[in-house]
Design a binder for these strands. Structure first.
Lengths: 209, 209
DNA sequence: CAAGATATCAAACGCTTGTTTGAAAGTAAA
DNA sequence: TTTACTTTCAAACAAGCGTTTGATATCTTG
């Protein structure tokens, strides 16, 4: 019984992490309760503190930026022109944010925290968001050319991310505005297409203007 | 003592409402506590329930969409081409969202609620956000012409609002990304200019494409 | 198997939350 | 001034929170 067998302990840890990602991404850090996480993980209330020290510790371990990083490296190695890579990025990013079926609650969890800071925000920013902005900054730079200032370039990145995030952050509102709206795969891809069109038109205008 | 004299009761109510707008806009509905609101209003904890019935009731009364509506009517009556009116809207909207000195906590309060729904979200949507989307929808329509579909038009509105909101919602993140950032009036106007440029370029491309 | 370490559990702790209470203070009209 | 009503207040309430506890169960190992 040395390796490879999954101990009961590890099972509980894994269930807690999964439940935590679920609840954190749905309710935010403040809104999520340890009791609800433990209920969904079929674990005792004390389990969180036993395995992770505290609710903060659980959040820190539940955070996982692998998927977001993978999205960037895959995109960077794609053998395409920058316009197509931007289109691809927006597509993958929106699927990650909106597709229920995509198992990437990590990303949505992260998005929840952006608005109101938790102890983990610094880690999120340095490990995930800053690299993301730099990645997009390079991509935008490829598109607009060298005449555009760095500040302007950064604002373009924010314009792209702002459009994407809005669909996630304001879902409750958009749902009420157009009740028939469903984020199925077709809808998400249509939205991603719009954001890419919209952004590329603006960026190309900047390059030529 | 019939009119014009401000009773003690009315003074307390007014102080509570002002303090509530302050705290709600800073901490969100969940994060705000009745005790903190009462402390800032120099009132007893029981005052909220006495005057407004509950914390929910206080939120409902504290909400005030006058400023947001005024922004729309002023804009609509501006004797300008739709491009300039969009530019003007973005400018005024960003000032309302970001300028500390602008006394419009109502708008920021509202923005806080969008991400995680409170009992008041329905009221906010029907009374403030839906009209805002319709207003912007008409403005966008004037710019892109009649060839663009209604769905696409709506998505353009979201693209504009998404860019604006991002600076507000993600302030904690943007502050960490560029620590020297300060939302003074110059910076806000520069940002508003960028968003207007970016969006108009995309909209004009849609009209001509 | 027996002993020691590890993991789970029900229960409770201390704290904060929104809300309620009943008495005290303030106000207005007879 | 007296009477009736409104407003404030300190204190307490019940519920929920994250966390701790000490006993119990479950493994691992000699």
């Amino acid at each position: 019984m040395t390796d490879q067998t999954i101990t009961a302990c590890e099972q509980t840890r894994a269930r807690l992490l999964e439940a935590a990602r679920e609840v954190f991404s749905q309710c935010g850090f403040q809104g999520a309760t340890v009791r609800e996480i433990c209920r969904r993980a079929d674990a005792n209330v004390a389990a969180v503190n036993y395995h992770f020290g505290s609710k903060d510790g659980l959040l820190a371990e539940a955070l996982n930026f692998a998927q977001l990083k993978a999205l960037q490296t895959e995109n960077a190695t794609a053998d395409k022109c920058p316009e197509k890579r931007l289109r691809l990025f927006v597509h993958d990013f929106m699927l990650m944010l909106l597709d229920e079926k995509s198992a990437s609650r990590q990303c949505r969890m992260m998005a929840r925290e952006l608005a109101d800071p938790t102890p983990a925000l610094d880690k999120i920013v340095t490990e995930a968001i800053a690299p993301l902005h730099e990645f997009l900054g390079r991509l935008v730079r490829e598109i607009v050319g060298s005449k555009v200032s760095e500040t302007e370039c950064r604002r373009c990145v924010i314009s792209v991310l702002g459009q994407c995030s809005f669909y996630y952050h304001s879902e409750p509102v958009l749902q009420r505005l157009t009740p028939e709206l469903r984020y199925d795969r077709n809808e998400i891809e249509a939205i991603a297409g719009h954001i890419a069109d919209f952004s590329l038109a603006a960026l190309l205008a900047k390059r030529n203007g």
